[in-house]
């Protein structure tokens, strides 16, 4: 029987980590909810963010957490041509075409990472990644707390953007009836491009945080993607605040699962939970995601 300190530390760490997970899923969630696109390259965008944070540190010597805005802009900018040259021409061709194109982008990126940065695993080495923080009986890495704070702030900001601003209105309208939106004066292409870039920028930030907290490599994208999908589905699809809740729930339950069943079961618990939620959640919850 593990002692109370370990249990509470684990749970707190899980919750905090869940916040970071939510951030990694945020970009996926926006793009899915607004553009109806399952961005299969999302995990690789996160990896781009991690590499960007790493090289930013190497070349400037500035802490990547301070450089987060730069990383976000950089990854967001990278996404612009992906949207305008690859996705925009497929508009109106159904979800699969864009989804497969993003899958192709994902395998190209993964290959490019190996060619450019070798297959080594790396991490953004900062003190705060390893320094433990102790509050009474509870101990957890400092990076978790920093990441959690950044993540919650960013998610709330995005939520505000989507639900309360004129841009958010345009974005939601374009998602359901692009033609009607255009006739009302919405520049649908621009809105979608900005949304896609926003999603990528969030992934950039999330990737840097992941890179600081854990090791990563060229092929980490797959695992990132799956975790993000679980968060998105758990939290209610395409729902920004839901993503935060989903992330925290996943983080906490994974930690509990890992503690009680063994570390190998962490992810398994998450996925099982996900399917159970789907099966037993009352219809009303999903109605939002469907529309």
């Amino acid at each position: 029987m593990p002692d109370i300190g370990i249990i509470s530390s684990t749970i707190v760490a899980g919750v905090l980590l869940g916040g970071i997970l939510a951030l990694t899923a945020l970009g996926l969630s926006i793009v899915l909810g607004v553009m109806r696109l399952v961005n299969l390259a999302h995990g690789d965008f996160l990896v781009v963010g991690a590499y960007a944070g790493l090289f930013f540190l190497q070349f400037t010597g500035i802490d990547p957490l301070i450089g987060l805005p730069v990383v976000a802009v950089f990854v967001g900018m990278l996404a612009l041509p992906v949207y305008s040259f690859l996705l925009a021409p497929l508009a109106g061709r159904g979800a699969e075409a864009q989804m497969m194109t993003m899958f192709a982008v994902s395998i190209i990126l993964e290959n490019a990472f190996v060619l450019a940065f070798s297959a080594d695993t790396r991490s953004i080495a900062r003190d705060y990644a390893t320094v433990p923080l102790t509050l009474g009986p509870i101990t957890f890495p400092l990076i978790y707390l920093i990441g959690f704070a950044i993540s919650v702030t960013l998610i709330l900001a995005v939520h505000w953007l989507v639900s309360a601003t004129a841009f958010g209105r345009d974005l939601r309208a374009s998602a359901v009836d692009a033609q009607a939106a255009a006739t009302l004066g919405v520049d649908v292409k621009r809105v979608q491009m900005l949304t896609f870039a926003l999603g990528a920028a969030c992934a950039g930030v999330g990737g840097t945080l992941m890179g600081a907290a854990f090791q990563f490599g060229p092929s980490s994208g797959g695992a990132y993607l799956l975790n993000s999908l679980a968060v998105v589905v758990l939290g209610g699809l395409g729902n920004v605040i839901g993503t935060l809740i989903g992330g925290i729930a996943l983080g906490a339950l994974q930690s509990i699962g890992g503690l009680t069943l063994g570390d190998g079961y962490r992810d398994l618990v998450g996925m099982a939970l996900f399917l159970l939620v789907l099966a037993f959640r009352p219809d009303g919850f999903l109605a939002k995601g469907r529309t």
């Binding site: 209105r169 939601r172 309208a173 998602a175 359901v176 009836d177 033609q179 009607a180 939106a181 529309t291």
Partner: peptide
């Protein structure tokens, strides 16, 4: 024609 109301708004 056909109203075209946005259901998500």
């Amino acid at each position: 024609e056909g109203r075209r109301i946005f259901p998500t708004l």
